[in-house]
């Protein structure tokens, strides 16, 4: 049978798994090379490329900006997304499914186009500060995650418990904070994590607004990679992997990692 004891299937799967993990392992190895080229096998061992990261101001400020933008955009998406989902799932509004699709529609537009269009319309034509435009772009990236994850858990939640709250004397506003929010807490955390990770990693939207005034980390690495070819890129890649692992660990501790892929 095609189960986990099937030898052919196991062999193929482990090979594919190796194919998935190996490239990342190679990056880790090259980051310790004491030569100034990225090559394997490495000749000697050094930490100097990690030190070199901190010599690149673009990486430092880029990290800060990416962090701030991701945090603000994720928070904003939750703040705007949760009430919308609440209204859509609880109040049997007309055209509810149309609104649902409309809120998810930014995913249908290629990210590079969103970045390009925002840059033209908001930065150039409206003369909005680049930072604000970045937040807007990343907010559009985040909103669909919030809509999807929160809707799923609102639909799973028994609507009677909210009514029970009203009968116990809660006003609808109070009930929302005391009953609804605590019950969708895990999916709020999940949505926030998905928003944060995807915003932090995003390139296409940030790309057009990345410039002398503001640097984001991923485009900064992309830039560095195109102009230099030394293990500094490997080193910062390793740091980003550690960052990802740390995020995954936090999610696992908080709500169980499974929640963010559902």
């Amino acid at each position: 049978m095609l189960d986990r004891r099937n030898k052919t299937l196991t062999t193929i799967s482990i090979l594919i798994l190796a194919l998935i993990m190996l490239p990342l392992v190679l990056v880790v190895i090259t980051s310790f090379n004491n030569e100034s080229s990225i090559s394997l096998p490495i000749k000697g061992f050094t930490f100097s490329w990690y030190a070199n990261i901190f010599q690149e101001p673009d990486f430092i400020t880029g990290f800060e900006t990416s962090l701030v933008v991701a945090l603000i955009a994720s928070g904003l998406a939750l703040l705007i997304g949760i009430p919308a989902v609440y209204a859509l799932t609880r109040y049997h509004l007309q055209h509810a499914s149309w609104f649902q699709s409309f809120f998810l529609s930014p995913t249908l537009i290629p990210e590079i186009v969103i970045g390009f269009a925002l840059y033209q319309a908001v930065v150039i034509n409206l003369r909005t500060p680049v930072f604000i435009s970045l937040i807007i772009g990343h907010f559009l990236l985040c909103l669909p995650y919030v809509i999807r994850l929160i809707t799923a858990s609102m639909l799973l939640m028994d609507s009677h418990i909210e009514e029970a709250g009203w009968i116990c004397g809660c006003s609808p506003q109070k009930g929302f904070f005391l009953i609804v929010l605590p019950n969708i807490k895990t999916s709020i955390i999940a949505a926030f994590m998905m928003c944060f990770i995807n915003s932090f990693n995003n390139i296409p939207i940030s790309l057009f607004m990345n410039g002398p005034s503001i640097t984001m980390l991923p485009p900064a690495i992309l830039n560095y990679l195109q102009n230099n070819y030394d293990p500094t890129v490997s080193a910062i890649s390793v740091l980003l992997m550690v960052f990802t692992a740390l995020m995954m660990f936090l999610v696992e501790k908080a709500i169980g990692i499974k929640k963010i892929t559902e």
């Binding site: 998935i20 993990m21 490239p23 990342l24 190679l26 990056v27 990770i197 932090f200 990693n201 390139i203 991923p218 690495i221 992309l222 990679l225 890129v233 490997s234 890649s237 980003l240 992997m241 990802t244 692992a245 995020m247 995954m248 990692i257 892929t261």
Partner: peptide
């Protein structure tokens, strides 16, 4: 999930 959540620049650079 780990590669899925790792930055695309890193994955392509590999």
């Amino acid at each position: 999930l780990f590669p899925m959540l790792t930055n695309a620049v890193v994955r392509n650079f590999a």
